[in-house]
Design a binder for these strands. Structure first.
Lengths: 188, 188
DNA sequence: ACCGATTTGGTAGTAACTATCACTGCGGTA
DNA sequence: TACCGCAGTGATAGTTACTACCAAATCGGT
């Protein structure tokens, strides 16, 4: 509930022009309570379940597939879950509002990209490749970071489109553009 | 000079444990002067010429090559320029110290990644592809973001290695891991 | 020697946090 | 029913990054 009020206020008045106290008042709680649930102001926008979702699908994926396909598949699946179902849902609009804030507000954009970096580490761990071989670990890091970069580009495009395009398809298109159509096609 | 003192203090005492006032005192100037040259505390570590260097090499590259090769070549060239010449130079050590801070400090890491995002836009602009075609623009964004992700992974590896490996080679290896050996090999 | 422009410095203020302590409501137990 | 522990909430005071505004100094050129 606090997050809902926060995103609404940030969208209406702007992120920097809205203080944490404003959010607290709108939600009918004290500033302290806000800080207890959201360690930083940025987290009011950034907190979600995406990372957990992706990591779960990575571990569930077959280790026989190439790295990029395992990661890409997890990203597309997670996106399908998040945006899935009927159109024009409140959840989808909320996701779009948060995404727009993340893209346009420097502080949010920076921390969001840093979250992607943390997600990258989670993905590499979830891949379960032997960390003994530094070369294999390096390839996993590269694959994860490149996939997430493609994901981010797709997310930006999706937000620019106001969510009209299907997000999973966009991500597949981005992956195809990055790694060649042979990888991306199958994922669509 | 201010930046040198800042990086030294941040490395010695830690980023969060060092105030801007501490940096100002060490450099023998007032806090105001620090803020005038470096808009934010993070910029004390992050400011450099890398973005300009990369953008210049992108515009100088041949538009006939595939996107990833144009961008990758520019990244490798720039890295060669920055780390180039003799080993153990003060400049290289300084770069390493800054990089270590960027990787280990959350606030710096976040803003650094955001700088990469800005660099991505600069690269796309420098590519000079027709922005009229949204599909072509999308592919340029994807290529740029993925290349920068690979670059970042290479930089992390380079820092973990204390700069012993040749950076341009590492970047080429990362690009090869992401986009296939056929792209990366030629760049080495 | 002078003057315009750039650089530097001081003061006061805002807002994001943090540490610490006190209070309130709630379920389970004797 | 009285009690206990505990999670959630709140108030106060302090630190620090950063900004707006104005004053002083310093520097290069005529």
């Amino acid at each position: 509930m606090i997050q809902t009020h926060a995103v609404r206020l940030f969208t209406e008045r702007g992120y920097d022009a809205t203080t944490v106290t404003d959010v607290a008042e709108a939600a009918g709680v004290s500033p302290m309570t806000v800080y207890r649930h959201f360690p930083t102001k940025e987290d009011l926008v950034l907190v979600d379940q995406h990372g957990r979702l992706v990591a779960e699908r990575i571990v569930a994926s077959s280790a026989a597939q190439p790295l990029v396909r395992r990661i890409g598949g997890a990203l597309i699946d997670s996106a399908a879950t998040l945006t899935g179902g009927d159109d024009l849902t409140a959840g989808k609009q909320f996701l779009l509002a948060r995404l727009r804030l993340m893209i346009s507000t420097p502080a949010l954009r920076a921390k969001h990209l840093d979250n992607h970096y943390a997600l990258q580490q989670a993905i590499v761990d979830a891949l379960g490749d032997d960390a003994a071989d530094p070369d294999s670990a390096f390839r996993a890091q590269v694959a994860a970071s490149a996939c997430l970069a493609a994901l981010h580009t797709a997310l930006v495009r999706w937000a620019e489109d106001d969510g009209r395009t299907e997000l999973p398809g966009l991500i597949a298109k981005a992956l195809a553009a990055a790694f060649g159509d042979d990888i991306g096609e199958d994922l669509r």
